[in-house]
Design a protein around this nucleic acid. Structure first.
Lengths: 203, 203
DNA sequence: ACCTGAACACCGTTCAAGT
DNA sequence: ACCTGAACACCGTTCAAGT
């Protein structure tokens, strides 16, 4: 592949993310990563501690790729645009999603990520505990949404052909699944969550 | 380990889940799985197509382990108890969480899972499209919540020691993080989401 | 019919050796 | 200082051979 010579930590992690995006997590091996950088696998150990550190770096790179929109002061807008910015970043790297379930959140990128999200919730949640609960709920919703909808396609279930006796509820909603819009789903979920927040605020 | 002789698909998958629970996904190898069953690795290929099929089976086993509570007809109660039943099942198998991001949802267990969740939402959401949006939001929230809170501990960030200049929002909420209750967070999120649903219903 | 041994093409990682 | 070759202990998987 490329031949950047002058290998360093940042270029190793960039190559790792590119490899994951292009061919999936299982394609990320030290040997293939070295190959992408025009270097033998063993050379990588000069720049990263081990493969775990590479995975941590990929996780961090994904979080760092979120482009946080400017804060306007209208909290509903700010929460919505921030959620979409996060969702967009995850959509760029669907193959990296499993890392969100295995990497502990103690990197600089993780902290910055949480910092940015918290900043959008200071207005509706003056109480710090509620604010943390709200920010984690919001992030959980976006992460879960990405998990459900960005899985490697494979062959999705054939909802037309399923057994209506065994799965009556699924059969009932099957017609809407043929042209289902995941983005509308997230918008709806954000609407509902924020409506609940607003209601809590008033009471 | 054990010596069940009479190896079959179901016992292979049960052993696989036990191995994942005990030592993590990376410990799940065909050789170790065979060892746990008192058999050589190659024998497993008589019962499962390949390792992918084992991972699919583990995923399915986790979904199938959800103990859906009976439906009472009070939809708020039913949604809440169902969400907690799902959350409890995920908590039993934190090491299997990454599989939720990689396995396509076309197994019998996946369909049954969705069927059960949909059944709790028929009352508040007579419209099928809204019902699907709501069910996916609910599942996304629980999945994301598990991802955020059930990660292999490692060393969480030391919120006491972080740079208050660089992360003012985190510094502000740091005091509440020392005794933070993830369960309360999910309850709060469910409250808010369902309050939003109720409001939508009225309008 | 079911299990195994040997084999192949891969892994992550170490370490002495090269420049 | 940085990279490499050879090596070790592992992988998933195939297939002919055993019982």
């Amino acid at each position: 592949m490329a031949r950047p010579r002058k290998v360093e930590r940042s270029s190793v992690l960039a190559a790792a993310l590119a490899l994951v995006d292009a061919e999936g997590l299982s394609a990320l091996t030290m040997r293939r990563l070295g190959e992408a950088l025009g270097v033998e696998a063993m050379s990588l150990y000069r720049h990263v501690a081990n493969k775990e550190a590479v995975l941590d770096g990929v996780h961090e790179a994904v979080l760092a790729s979120v482009e946080w929109p400017a804060i306007t002061g209208r909290w509903r807008d700010d929460v919505r645009t921030a959620a979409w910015a996060f969702r967009r970043a995850l959509r760029e790297h669907p193959n990296a999603l499993p890392l969100l379930a295995t990497r502990p959140a103690n990197t600089a990128a993780s902290l910055e990520h949480l910092e940015q999200a918290l900043a959008r919730l200071a207005t509706p949640f003056p109480d710090p505990r509620r604010r943390v609960q709200a920010v984690q709920s919001l992030l959980a919703l976006v992460i879960g949404h990405a998990m459900i909808h960005d899985a490697p396609v494979g062959t999705g279930p054939d909802y037309e052909a399923l057994d209506a006796e065994a799965f009556p509820m699924l059969a009932c909603v099957a017609p809407v699944l043929s042209d289902y819009d995941p983005d509308a789903e997230l918008d709806f979920a954000l609407d509902c969550l924020m409506a609940g927040w607003a209601k809590r605020r008033r009471s």
